[in-house]
Amino acid sequence: MKFNIPNFISGIIVTVLGLFFLILSFGIKTNSNDIFNASFMPKVYTTLIILFGISIIINSFKDKINHQTLKEYKGPILTMLLVTIYVIVIPILGYYLSTIIMIFAFLFIVKFENRVLLVLTPFIASALIYAVFEILLQVPIPKGSLF
């Protein structure tokens, strides 16, 4: 049977999530005896999500076959991993140090040619952020537990 894989998968994910939250909606505790209480809208939304999710699944059988390869996901997924590590590390090492490391790591992964820029960019960027956020706007920057 031929069908569009990505659409099929997204359809399934949507439907399952919809079902999950619909079940959760029934757990919303409220004192009100009203029909239109706090759990009403969530139930409406999740039910509709399930219906449309099913529609996506059904349509995936009618859709054109997808010829995308998984290769083009490589870069973005690597980047997402890097950024996830970055977000985890900021509360430990502090914003500036984490950012410098992150930019270095990214430019390294991408095999950035220009060595001078490779080194300068993290520092210039951090310096600018410091100037604009901490000095000009007086908005705090995330501090880490170590730094």
Partner: peptide, 18 residues
């Protein structure tokens, strides 16, 4: 783009926090 991407990421982080 290689420079723009990480710079945008760092701005996203600080922007969301601020």
């Amino acid at each position: 783009k290689a420079i723009l991407v990480p710079v945008i990421i760092m701005l996203c982080a600080v922007g969301s926090y601020s």
